[in-house]
Amino acid sequence: MSRIGKKAVSMPAGVSANIADGVLAVKGPKGQLTMPMSDDISYEIEGEGVLVKPANETKRARAFWGMQRTLVQNLVTGVTEGFSKVLEINGVGYRAKVQGKTLNMQLGYSHDVDFAIPEGIDIKTPDQTTIEISGMDKQQVGQVAAEIRRWRKPEPYKGKGIKYRGEYIFRKEGKKK
């Protein structure tokens, strides 16, 4: 039995859910998010929340149960609060700034790196070495953060590169004489 799956997803005031054509749609103050429903899981909309249960007693249904409940919770959180990730840039001359719908980064290459900001994502640069990524869809926010980080991953000797806020970079000792 899934401990997470047993709990109903509570919906705060101003949030509504709708099931139609195999798609669960959640609407809230920030907008609307949809998720395709799994055949192994049954979804029931009750007065104050969404209840997720396995549709049958197969191993696959029990395995998907907790994950599907968490995905529904992410939809509700996304339309009410949203999600955010913060990236930090370390390195001499490394900086970033938002110009319209592109993120312009100088990361030690011979050219500037321009990253097109996708729809549904908001990127802010409060200072030259901090990038704040926010949006409704948790998966999309994480994917954009990973794509930006991929341009210059932190290296283990000096720690130069783009890292998540709070991420620990395992440091190596340099060359000895």
Rank of each mutant, 00 (worst) to 15 (best):
G108D: 14
M37I: 13
A20I: 03
Y164D: 13
Q73Y: 01
I4R: 10
E57H: 09
E46W: 09
K163R: 14
V86I: 10
K27Y: 07
A96N: 11
G161F: 05
P12N: 09
F115M: 11
G82Q: 07
M1V: 14
E88K: 14
W151Q: 15
V9N: 06
K53T: 07
R152T: 10
I133R: 00
K175G: 00
D21K: 10
V144R: 01
I131F: 06
V113H: 14
I131H: 03
D137G: 06
H111E: 08
K53E: 14
Q68I: 00
E119R: 08
Q32W: 04
K176M: 06
E81H: 08
Q139T: 10
I133P: 02
M11E: 08
V86C: 10
E48T: 15
G22C: 06
K175V: 10
R150T: 11
V26F: 04
K153R: 15
W151Y: 15
N74I: 04
R60N: 13
T34D: 13
A17D: 03
T125S: 06
M105N: 06
T80H: 07
A55H: 04
G135N: 02
I4K: 04
G28N: 03
K85P: 00
Q68W: 02
R69W: 05
P12Y: 05
I19Q: 09
Q143F: 05
Q73A: 07
I131G: 04
Q140N: 10
E46H: 12
K172L: 15
K59D: 15
R149C: 12
D112Q: 10
R152N: 15
K138F: 11
S16H: 11
G91M: 02
T77Y: 03
E132G: 00
V92D: 15
P12Q: 05
E119I: 08
W151P: 14
T70H: 03
G66P: 02
G66H: 08
E132R: 08
G14F: 09
I41F: 06
M105F: 07
G14C: 04
Y168F: 13
I162C: 07
K138E: 14
E81L: 08
Y109M: 06
A55Q: 05
V144L: 03
R171P: 09
A17S: 02
L24Y: 00
A20E: 12
D21T: 03
A145W: 01
L24K: 00
I169H: 02
R60Y: 09
I45L: 07
G142H: 08
